[in-house]
């Protein structure tokens, strides 16, 4: 039973394509296409989602994401600077914060802010503020570590040059180090934006008015109305409208960074 290498390659290929063909055939003939089309690809249902799924849900997803990202970025920068501080308590606080919020599920943070705080303190918080805080608090923990790595990647000679020109430590940080650090961390920060876009679906938990629906909640409601998965599929495609170009952007930024090195 000896086969030449070419024979063996040919046999393995044959088996691989054979299995693939069998699976495709089984799905094609075995599946109930009418049922699947009705459940997933109901064009009437899909059409009914427009334009609201864009003008309300997609827009809200973007707004929630950007609110969370903006807050998270600012807090993340502060945490990164605390993490690098020469004052030990600042470092401990930052490390504690980062470990905590990276370790607990974002869902829990949403519940705590959306329900816990209002109940415990008997206050009503604006939904947008809740979303901004919940997404930002979690995002900040991740962004802090990214930004810290970026700051540390700026060569020491840069600070020395800045200081030798008479800049203070803080001025050197603001004018020289942080601008360079952000260039370095632009790709990972964009990745963080993609993750936040998806995490913004957790807003679905909160009691929202119709105008505040984002993609996930919108899809969930339409699913109930139509007894069809189509709205979920459409909502999923809407997320891709945001995340695919961002992913593409990340790859281009990474390529640019690689070339600059």
């Amino acid at each position: 039973m000896s086969m030449s290498r070419r024979q063996r390659t040919r046999t393995v290929r044959g088996v691989q394509y054979g299995v693939l063909a069998l699976v495709v055939a089984a799905v094609a003939f075995g599946a109930n296409w009418g049922e699947i089309r009705r459940a997933f690809f109901d064009l009437d249902v899909a059409q009914a989602q427009f334009p609201d799924i864009i003008t309300t849900a997609l827009v809200n997803t973007v707004v929630y994401t950007l609110l969370g990202f903006g807050f998270g970025l600012a807090l993340g920068l502060i945490l990164a600077l605390m993490r690098l501080s020469s004052v030990p308590p600042y470092r401990w606080l930052a490390i504690g914060y980062i470990e905590f919020f990276r370790g607990v599920p974002a869902l829990l943070v949403f519940i705590a802010l959306g329900f816990g705080v209002p109940i415990a303190f008997q206050v009503v918080i604006n939904q947008y503020v809740t979303v901004m805080l919940a997404l930002g608090l979690v995002g900040a923990a991740y962004m802090a570590e990214t930004i810290r790595a970026g700051i540390q990647a700026v060569p020491k000679g840069q600070v020395e040059a800045a200081r030798s020109l008479g800049m203070s430590q803080g001025r050197a940080m603001r004018s020289i180090v942080i601008p360079q650090a952000f260039r370095i961390v632009l790709p990972p920060l964009t990745n963080e934006l993609i993750l936040l876009t998806k995490d913004s679906s957790l807003v679905y938990l909160l009691g929202l008015s119709l105008g505040q629906y984002e993609l996930a909640k919108f899809g969930r409601d339409a699913l109930n109305e139509n007894r069809s998965l189509t709205p979920i599929l459409v909502a999923g495609l809407c997320y891709l409208i945001i995340t695919l170009p961002l992913g593409h952007l990340v790859r281009r930024l990474e390529a640019r960074t690689a070339k600059a090195r």
Binding site: G157, Q158, E160, A161, A162, S164, P179, Q180, R183
Partner: peptide
């Protein structure tokens, strides 16, 4: 005091 370094240390951005 002006200082000039071996590795230039210009601000690349």
């Amino acid at each position: 005091i002006g200082m000039v370094f071996q590795s230039f240390n210009l601000f690349p951005h």
